[in-house]
């Protein structure tokens, strides 16, 4: 039996590794968008010349805060404080949803207040929408992970699995955080 348990453990590690590789693929996607941006603006001479709406700044702060709460949720899970873990996960999900809303509000400001639309002869502006949209899709995926971790904790699944879900969720969510900071800084530098 000991050997089987070990095989299962190896298998969980392999699955965690799957998440890491997925992060690489997803990073490549955003790297492609940003290098596409550079190639385009270098080739066409178009710059972004847009002051990004302030809601993107607030959404960044919200996302960083959600990473912090998720970190404490993981820590609570490791210390077997499930009530606390669940509460922190609820907060993280709430922050994640507020991030979503802030991004959409940012689009609203861009489109209705600043008259900068998705369709623009200056495609660098279209890039802003495409990048934030692609990131938003990832955030929705991250929210699904968060919900599955929360559900697992509420249903009192075995601690090994609970920790496994927490860890998978954390890897992905922190990655989303980092990739957003990367995109935001990239856009700020080009604005």
């Amino acid at each position: 039996m000991a050997q089987i348990q070990q095989e299962d453990k190896i298998n969980l590690n392999a699955k965690k590794f799957v998440m890491w590789i997925f992060i690489f693929t997803s990073f490549m996607l955003f790297a492609a968008f940003t290098s596409g941006f550079i190639v385009y603006s270098g080739g066409s001479g178009h710059g972004l010349s847009v002051i990004l709406p302030s809601s993107f700044r607030y959404s960044t702060l919200v996302l960083i805060a959600s990473s912090v709460t998720l970190f404490f949720a993981s820590r609570a899970a490791k210390r077997l404080e499930f009530e606390k873990q669940q509460m922190l996960l609820w907060i993280t999900i709430g922050l994640g949803i507020s991030f979503l809303l802030l991004q959409v509000y940012g689009w609203y400001i861009l489109a209705y207040k600043m008259q900068i639309y998705l369709v623009d002869p200056n495609a660098t502006r279209s890039f802003v929408y495409v990048m934030t949209f692609a990131h938003l899709l990832h955030v929705i995926g991250g929210l699904i992970w968060l919900i599955s971790a929360l559900k697992g904790s509420i249903n009192r699944i075995p601690q090994v699995k609970n920790l496994y879900r927490m860890e998978m969720t954390s890897i992905f969510w922190h990655f989303l955080d980092i990739i957003w900071i990367y995109l935001y800084v990239f856009l700020l530098l080009n604005q």
Binding site: I21, F24, T25, S26, M28, L29, A31, A32, F33, G36, Y40, L118, V119, D120, P121, A123, S126, F127, V130, A134
Partner: peptide, 25 residues
């Protein structure tokens, strides 16, 4: 594959935006 296919996805996403939403990438 893991490193290069996502780049195709990026290209295709922009193409879909051009086809269906009228952007000019």
């Amino acid at each position: 594959g893991v490193l290069s296919f996502p780049v195709l996805v990026a290209g295709v996403v922009l193409l879909i935006f051009d086809r269906s939403f009228g952007t000019s990438f």
